[in-house]
Design a binder for these strands. Structure first.
Lengths: 346, 346
DNA sequence: TTGAAAGCGGTACCAT
DNA sequence: ATGGTACCGCTTTCAA
């Protein structure tokens, strides 16, 4: 298929080689290739032809250095293995890639110091912007790293001190978990367990939501909060702990999808029947949970949308910087058999 | 906490500013900061102090341009939402990040032309290497893109024409699926359905494995192969099609984890009891599948390891280029209730 | 040991 | 419309 001689010898040729072959100046080549106006049709032809012959491909590194823009953004999350995070990344990537931005992905493993370190590296790589899901909202190193840049930063499901110039895309956990709580209370549950992660916005909102639900029922806040990491292991531990207490809760809300697997292990071991012996509600969808026996009631949200919105906010800032209002996306409660049927208050 | 004056004014200062503040030459700063030998203790001190004061952070773009190495690698996959891919990425990222490499992540959506395009962009960004999971093994554009570089390329679960210089990390699908097939055959199944994706290595190996299993039993190859994408939708379609045929298979092997959800929809709709009315085996683990009622038999593999090995092979090539033998990682069959109990051949 | 200067591969200003 | 050239921020001879 080689028309001429050295077509596609490997993308080694630079703009200089193209200029030589075309017998024109370097500046002209740059103009034509970057689609700037002010080139005669002949010039355009010659350059394009030469570039094609040499199989020229621009060195984006050099271009970025000179233009002071890399057309790349950094994503810092805890763990891409979490389908929640994966979905967010995926959503963000989809809108960024149509805008021709590349994504630098980093996993911090949920370790605050790693968050900070990774943010620093990404900034050194001169990313144009950052989408961050930090493990903590008040880690000094992370905050320092974030303060250390002019590049726009979008946070997902976290709120940072006001002195950090950042943009926010949040989920309305309060609504979904509130509905879940009210559902349980009107089903007669009076002692509800809530498994949560670290003290970040979703955790606070979920607790507040259930507390307010109790208040709305004029019932004492008999809420059992279990804190830890949002892992399957913690899900198991948390359920074990709650269920073996003197006065175990009759319903449990899991504040994270990863908890479900562990929770089910504990439930299985104790041969409890979900929806009968214990009501269970999970926050965030898990692939097969609606096919579980019984199906697992879930507080849903569109996680891909979370990533998309974050990317959109970021792109908008890249266009024209400025302050923005937080974007809040809905969550909703989907009752399923695992949270049982109504039965009169005890 | 600001010791001196302008400490941390934003990472705007370059190596030049450091040199000026320290009252030394630029070259010396570079030497000290990049840890090269041949600097007096005083020089080292002065430079370090100046850098600290200015909150200097290197511009990795400039460094990469000059060094002709970016310390970054590109990952091209179909869809990070697939927990399988997510796990691979995660595994790769974990070993790359300890080697201080950054990862550029791209989703192709399983579209061959997008694969090619994304590979091209990553190469223009001068990634030092590539880990690729292309949708097809013979897409001309993708192959051309891959041929277009000196950078080492590692393929996962794909084999390319011999003229492409690439390295391979593969799964031994033949073993796991073979065991699954033999399990079904000895349980008395004679007509087995196999749902697969496009014509890539895993698909071929799985078909071959079941065929050989039939042969090993001296039984006619009564295999029903259904081809399509590896989506939940296709899983549903495939099962609908197979189950509504005149002579439906009594057992089905799903050649991809995403198929399971769809398959379960079809099974539920028909009120079939898995392990009794129909035996089902899924390739690759799905989070809750072992908690399903009944638990889903699965052909397992360590997907994170797949990513780790790929990264290791890549790093080794970056150290010292050369040809390598394909790395093959095991798969194994885990029988569970969904594939029923033994019952005599019909 | 140290620093001046020549690039890396582009972009963009400025004069022609 | 075109091309020379300074420069982006850093590394790396090379000479002092």
């Amino acid at each position: 298929m080689n028309k001429k001689t050295a077509e596609g010898t490997g993308a080694r040729s630079g703009i200089k080689a193209v200029a030589e072959l075309a017998g024109v100046g370097i500046a002209s080549v740059s103009r034509v290739l970057s689609g700037q106006p002010g080139s005669s049709p002949q010039m355009t032809q010659r350059v394009l032809e030469a570039a094609r012959q040499l199989g020229y491909a621009p060195n984006l590194l050099a271009q970025s250095l000179r233009r002071r823009a890399t057309h790349s953004i950094g994503f810092v999350g805890s763990d891409i293995n979490n389908p929640l995070i994966a979905s967010i990344v995926s959503g963000a990537e989809s809108v960024l890639s149509v805008a021709r931005y590349s994504v630098l992905l980093t996993n911090s493993g949920g370790i605050p110091s790693v968050d900070a370190e990774r943010i620093e590296v990404l900034l050194q790589r001169q990313v144009d912007g950052l989408i961050v899901l930090p493990a903590l909202e008040d880690d000094p190193a992370t905050l320092a790293a974030l303060r250390n840049t002019q590049a726009p930063v979008v946070l997902i499901d976290r709120t940072l001190p006001a002195d950090i110039p950042a943009h926010y895309v949040l989920s309305d956990h309060y609504q979904g978990v509130g509905d879940a709580g009210r559902h349980l209370l009107s089903a007669g549950h009076r002692r509800i367990g809530l498994v949560v992660g670290r003290d970040v916005r979703p955790t606070r909102e979920r607790i507040r939501a259930v507390e307010d639900a109790y208040d709305g029922f004029g019932t004492p806040r008999d809420l059992v909060v279990h804190r830890g990491t949002l892992s399957a292991e913690h899900g198991e531990e948390a359920l074990e702990a709650m269920l073996s207490s003197e006065t175990p809760p009759s319903a449990v809300i899991l504040g994270g999808n990863q908890l479900l697997e562990g929770a089910l292990r504990a439930v299985d071991r104790r041969k409890l029947q979900l929806g009968v012996d214990l009501s269970l509600i999970c926050c965030d969808d898990v692939p097969l949970s609606r096919f579980h026996q019984p199906p697992i009631a879930t507080v849903m949200r569109d996680t891909a949308l979370l990533g998309k919105r974050a990317a959109e906010v970021l792109l908008a800032q890249l266009e024209s910087p400025g302050k923005t209002e937080p974007v809040t996306l809905p969550t909703w409660f989907e009752p399923r058999q695992s949270c049982g049927r109504f039965h009169p208050g005890r």
